Simulated scan of single mutants.
Amino acid sequence: MDGPRHPARRGRRRLNRRSDRVLAGETLPRSRAHHYYVATELVKVFALLALDTDVLTT
């Protein structure tokens, strides 16, 4: 999981490069990466809630 090919690390590096460019004053087209990140976090939250509810009811 700590290897250089881990998808989350690759995504963070891409976002860091993009934010560095924006902070340097470059104008870039809008990115959908933030929307994908939020969507996956919401899926994670709902999955954890579902698992928690399942554990508590058994």
Rank of each mutant, 00 (worst) to 15 (best):
F46A: 11
G25Q: 02
L15S: 11
N16L: 14
L42Y: 03
P29Y: 03
T27S: 11
A39Y: 13
E26K: 10
F46C: 10
A39H: 10
E26V: 12
L15R: 15
L28W: 03
L15H: 10
A39D: 08
R21P: 06
L42A: 12
E26C: 05
R21M: 11
D20H: 07
R18L: 06
L28V: 08
V22T: 09
G25I: 02
D20N: 12
A33N: 08
V22R: 12
R32D: 07
E41P: 01
T40S: 12
V22Y: 01
Y36V: 15
V38K: 05
S31L: 04
H35F: 09
N16V: 12
K44L: 11
L28C: 05
A33C: 01
T27M: 08
E26S: 05
K44C: 08
R18N: 01
R18S: 02
L42M: 10
D20E: 13
H34W: 14
E26Y: 06
V43W: 07
A39L: 15
P29V: 02
S19I: 10
R32I: 06
V45T: 11
E41A: 15
S31H: 02
E26D: 10
D20L: 11
D20V: 09
A33W: 07
F46E: 08
Y37N: 07
S19E: 13
K44G: 07
A24W: 00
R30M: 06
P29L: 01
G25R: 02
S31C: 04
P29F: 00
N16T: 11
H35P: 00
